[in-house]
Design a protein around this nucleic acid. Sequence first.
DNA 1: TGTACATCAGTGAACGCGCGTTCACTGATGTAC
DNA 2: TGTACATCAGTGAACGCGCGTTCACTGATGTAC
Lengths: 196, 196
Amino acid sequence: MGHSRAEKAQSRKRILAAAATRIREAGLDGISVGELMKSVNLTHGGFYGHFESRAQLIAAALEQALADGDQAVAAHVGERGATVKSIVNSYLSPAHRDHPSSGCAIPTLAGEVGRADPEVRAIMAQQLAKGFRLMGEAVGEADQDTEQFAASAWSMMIGAMMISRVMAGDPLADRVLAHARKSILELADLHGGRKS
Amino acid sequence: MGHSRAEKAQSRKRILAAAATRIREAGLDGISVGELMKSVNLTHGGFYGHFESRAQLIAAALEQALADGDQAVAAHVGERGATVKSIVNSYLSPAHRDHPSSGCAIPTLAGEVGRADPEVRAIMAQQLAKGFRLMGEAVGEADQDTEQFAASAWSMMIGAMMISRVMAGDPLADRVLAHARKSILELADLHGGRKS
DNA sequence: TGTACATCAGTGAACGCGCGTTCACTGATGTAC
DNA sequence: TGTACATCAGTGAACGCGCGTTCACTGATGTAC
């Protein structure tokens, strides 16, 4: 058991990574300090050497979870740019639906975050605004309709993912994802996105 | 304090109504047996005269909450029929966003339900299928695209409502609702709904 | 009509449990000489 | 290089608390005679 100072930062990272994964599969309330610490082979008492409180951990874990999911989208909108089609195809996939713990935190947690403290809501709100921007870049040059398209596409992606998860097991669950993919592309065409 | 047998059914209704309201403002985990009973002026012990367990209450309350919200939509799709526009305008309103406890349970609870037992998921899945049907009726005669439109419109309504709640307080929150309303009407036009 | 009794909706003390949090401690690490 | 000491990441017992659930009970109601 190493106890060097350099290892403390690594422990914190492991705790945070486990928490970011766990809240995506069990919700903000689905995590307990004891379970979390046990999952990274530590005891519960050590937790408070890394975080002030469970509430602060939740906020940090949400931020981390959003950052994780962000990379999945951002990877598609790199320097060479991504198309609406490529974003939508990877986001609205059955694989993403079936693995929430490594996916986008927004559909999983938006309901709970919507009724959380303003500070917690702000964390996700900022990520949403960033997502809108990325989606706007993907659809092409910014005109008046860009915000409408970006907000609508995100609304549809999040809603379709949640519906598909509720219906998982039913063939309709896959069709919901496919319908949303198609509708978003139709909207992109309507709003002048040549790259879609 | 009346203790007649006829009043027992009324007590159950009051408990269930309070629970249906409460889960929409605090989530499935945001309700405790003690608090719930106190809110209807009863003591916690009496709870088990009405429900087998907290888990069973949650399932019944979810069903009740969905039925409550259903009437709001169904009222628009009465015998004379409602338009997509009238559904979307009432659903995607700032008033609905700001009063989740009396609104549709789907955006509020879909995240938690998505990771719940299959029995609980089935309750909401059934309501979603019903909502798709109502939306399909509103858009006009059923063609091949009807399911696509209905699923996409519901996805967008649910997603936009959740996003708007997360962003509440920011002017963008209202615009997200407006953008979704407009995009749904555009999709309705595209899919031949004359009544939109 | 009036009395005695059975019913049963609701009461409230008690239970075991897991939670978040505190804190005196341990023992491996890195440093000073 | 080897020994003595300070640091501090992590340990684990203990705390108060609220939870879901149980159960012996109370007392108002409806019924039987």
